[in-house]
């Protein structure tokens, strides 16, 4: 599913964010990317989101070399992804329902389907009663659940999450991880970047530890 073949990413003045990294993540895997700040976790997620391309090496997802995608192919590729960020990235001037429905709406889903699907995922994350609330009226955990609902509303094949529990307390973090486990149980590949080793231990899934842009440990 995801195959990084000796990828490197350098920024200005030759600073390596990733160096000669090779990694394979199979379809349906649940993988944690961990390591200290600056290890390259977020850079790898940026490359997987195709917000950037490797300076060297190849990053293949679903048999396609991401660096070779045309802008339209990038759009199509991103439609197969779901993303969750530490800062939730919810639109403050839109309600919970509108935030989640934005995805099917801009992807051209018919309105009746949009509503049905949005309601379905909000119910699944347990927020069907907060549909008309605005993000700032929600707790951090609730906001992250809205972000997760938005990430899965389009039935993605891969979920990418960058420090999704960074702003949450341990209990809420585990609650959010349980949602990811459930998503993964349905066959969706999940890649979560986190520096929280305790959380990884509690969830008990495969982890890849990065350090200075290279793989330091596979567990």
């Amino acid at each position: 599913m995801i195959e990084a073949d000796r990828i490197s990413k350098t920024y200005a003045r030759g600073v390596y964010a990733l160096r000669d990294l090779s990694l394979r993540i199979d379809k349906g895997d649940f993988v944690f990317l961990t390591g200290p700040s600056g290890a390259g976790k977020s850079t790898l997620l940026r490359l997987l989101l195709r917000r950037d391309v490797p300076s060297e090496g190849q990053l293949i997802v679903g048999g396609r070399n991401l660096a070779e995608l045309t802008p339209r192919q990038v759009q199509a590729y991103r439609r197969s992804l779901g993303f969750v960020f530490q800062d939730f990235k919810l639109l403050q001037n839109k309600t919970v329902l509108q935030n989640v429905a934005l995805v099917p709406r801009v992807l051209g889903m018919p309105p009746s389907q949009q509503q049905r699907r949005t309601f379905q995922v909000l119910k699944w994350v347990g927020l069907q009663h907060r549909m008309s609330a605005y993000p700032l009226e929600l707790s951090g955990g609730e906001q992250q659940r809205v972000a997760i609902a938005r990430a899965i509303v389009n039935d993605p094949v891969i979920i990418l999450a960058d420090e999704p529990t960074g702003n949450l307390d341990p209990d809420l973090s585990l609650e959010i991880m349980n949602l990811f486990r459930e998503i993964n149980a349905r066959g969706t590949t999940v890649v979560v970047a986190t520096h929280d080793r305790e959380l990884i231990r509690r969830v008990g899934r495969r982890s890849v530890t990065l350090n200075h842009g290279q793989i330091a440990e596979l567990a």
Binding site: R51, V74, Q75, Y77, R78, K89, V106, L107
Partner: peptide, 17 residues
Amino acid sequence: RDEIEIMQLVGAPFAYV
């Protein structure tokens, strides 16, 4: 900016953005 970023990340067509 945030809305545009989200639309880009979900793969919204250019016309929509």
